[in-house]
Amino acid sequence: MVKLSDTHEKEARELRAVYCDALIQAAEHDPRIVAIDCDVSSSLGTKNFAKRFPDRALNVGIMEANACSMAAGMSAAGLIPFFHTFSVFASRRICDQVFQSCAYAGLNVKIIGGDAGITATNNGGTHMPFEDLGIMRLIPGVTVMEPTDGTMLQSLVPQMAETYGVQYMRFPRRQVPKIYADGSEFTIGKSVVLRQGEDAAIIANGIMVYEALKAARLLAEENIQVRVVDMFTLKPLDQEQVIESAARTGAVVTAENHQLAGGLGCAVAQVLAEHRPTPMEMVGIRDEFGEVGSQDYLAHRFGLTAQDIAAAVRRTYERKQNI
C-alpha cells in the first residue's frame, strides 16, 4: 500500500545507504545474491555489503565490460548478481554487454547505476547520465526504473531479487525529498497517482516527481488543478495510467531528469500517439551534454525546475482549451 508523506523534507538517510541495507536484507534471505563492484563501492555505498558478506562481494576493479559479462556468467551458474557502478558506465560503457551477455542471453542480472542525471553535479558532463534510461529502454526485455525516494527504493530492491530478468535501476546517491510514508510498498511497473486534478496531468519520474508536486501547488493557486503521476518504472511503462491520465485531463506534461529522446517523454508520447492523441509537452534535456555545477544550478541551466514544469502545463492547458 502507498501512503504519502505529510511533508516533503529531505530524507534523513542517503539513498546509497538505504540501498545497501536493502541489498543486505535481501541477501540474508537469498544466498544466491552477490554484489559486483568496479572500484566505486565507496561512492555507491556498497562497502557494508562487503563487510557483511565478504565472499559474496566482488570488487573486480575498473573493468565494467568484464564485470557485466561476468555477472551474466554468474547468473548462468545460478547466482543473482547485483552489479554497481556510476550510471554513465552502467549504460553507455557496457551497452553491448548488457545487450548480449545479459538480455539476449536471457539471464538474471541486476544493474544499478549511481548518480541520476544532474545529481552527478561535481563530476560534470563526462559523468552526467542523460542517456542511460534510453539506452536501457531500447534493449528488449530490460526493466528500467528510477525510485523516487528511500521508501520506494527499499520496496523495490527485494522485488528485483525475486523477479527473474535484466533490470536497470538508477538513483541519486545522496538524500532526496521524502515523498512516501515509511512502509509504503510499490510494484514494479505500476505507477502511483500522487495528486488528483482534472485540468492537466504531470507524469514524472526521479527527482522530477518532487518538482512536479511543487508545480502542481503553484498551478493550484491559479485554479489549474493538476493530476500528478509518479511513473517510476519507465519500462514496462504503465500504459493504462498514461491513457487514463490523458482521458481524465486532456493535457499531459512529462518531466524527467534525462534526455527527451528515449526517455519518459518519448515513452509517454508513444503510448498517447497510438492510443489517445492528447496535447502534450515534455520537460527534460533537449539534446545537450551535462556540465559541472551544483544541482540547483544545473536544474535551472537545463530547465528542470517546478517553474519550468508549471510553464509547460500552462501552455499545454491553453492548447487544450483551443482545440
Partner: peptide, 9 residues
C-alpha cells in the same frame, strides 16, 4: 568474461 563469472560462481 562470462566463463570467468561461471568459474567464480
Amino acid at each position: 568474461s562470462a566463463a570467468v563469472g561461471i568459474s567464480w560462481a
